[in-house]
């Protein structure tokens, strides 16, 4: 089946990009829900919220008890897809809140977000890709390092509007992931642009290009293509 439009968005109005800086998770969640309600009622315009969160763990409904922090650290239960993850300084978080083109194609929407983040990583010299059965952007395993995730995606679609979104690890303190099983995947690691490139890559360095690239992907200017991470028998699967 072919789409009637190259865009994943129903609206032809430009996406409004909001740079919110450091903002509390619950405050951002409330803002998302308010905008999503407006978009469901054809009020306002599609928005891309770009921000950082103070350190926080968030858990989707499928999170297993064994994946949670074992030290009693608070966790916020959320209504996005996926399991548990961490957000914090040094990680660029993006919440595109868009009314999706009809008929809604969730997989296509997520693949566009992945495509944008893959393009950003590749542009910086980090060769990322997709892993079958998982969302987000991954780097291939080598003999010395496991498959590892550099960007996470967790989305909710309600009344035809997408909310929640993605996070890209720029230069966060990745030790925050040590107390959880990120995304419930035990056989993979987490990485950042700074680790992979061997230099400091801050959120400020990538924010503008992420904004531009995400909008280009959603509007169909940046086409989705195959970027499958090479896997071999040493790498087991997860979700």
């Amino acid at each position: 089946m072919t789409r009637r439009t190259e865009s994943a968005r129903l609206s032809t109005e430009p996406v409004a990009v909001d740079h919110l800086g450091l903002i509390d998770y619950r405050e951002a969640w409330e803002l998302q829900r308010r905008i999503a309600d407006e978009r469901a009622n054809d009020i306002g315009t599609d928005r891309l919220l770009l921000l950082e969160h103070p350190s926080v763990y968030t858990a989707g409904r499928r999170t297993d008890l064994a994946d949670l922090p074992q030290d009693g650290t608070p966790v916020i239960d959320v209504d996005r897809g996926g399991k548990i993850t961490w957000h914090g300084p040094g990680q660029l978080v993006g919440y595109p809140i868009v009314k999706l083109a009809e008929p809604v194609d969730v997989v296509d929407y997520v693949r566009r977000l992945e495509e944008a983040l893959i393009a950003v990583c590749n542009g910086l010299g980090v060769e990322g890709g997709r892993v079958e059965g998982r969302s987000g952007v991954w780097l291939p395993a080598s003999f010395v390092r496991p498959e590892r995730k550099i960007a996470a995606i967790g989305v909710r679609v309600q009344r035809g509007v997408a909310l929640h979104g993605f996070s890209l690890n720029c230069n966060p303190d990745l030790s925050a992931f040590d107390t959880i099983v990120p995304c419930g995947i035990r056989d993979a690691g987490v990485t950042s642009l700074s680790i992979e490139l061997g230099r400091e890559v801050g959120v400020d360095e990538v924010t503008a290009v992420v904004a531009e690239t995400v909008v280009r992907a959603l509007d169909g200017v940046l086409q989705v293509s195959a970027h499958d991470v090479a896997r071999d028998a040493r790498v087991t699967s997860g979700t």
Binding site: G60, R61, R62, D79, R80, G81, V106, V107, Y109, V110, G133, R134, S135, I153, G154, V155, R156, V157, Q158, R159, A162, T239
Partner: peptide, 30 residues
Amino acid sequence: VVYVKLPDIDDEVVGGDSFGEIESTKSVSD
């Protein structure tokens, strides 16, 4: 699809309203 959240038996559902969720590896939808 990796998770389905459904109502309980004897729950009342309202036409046009969400009564559950389906979660895939990619997203959650009502």
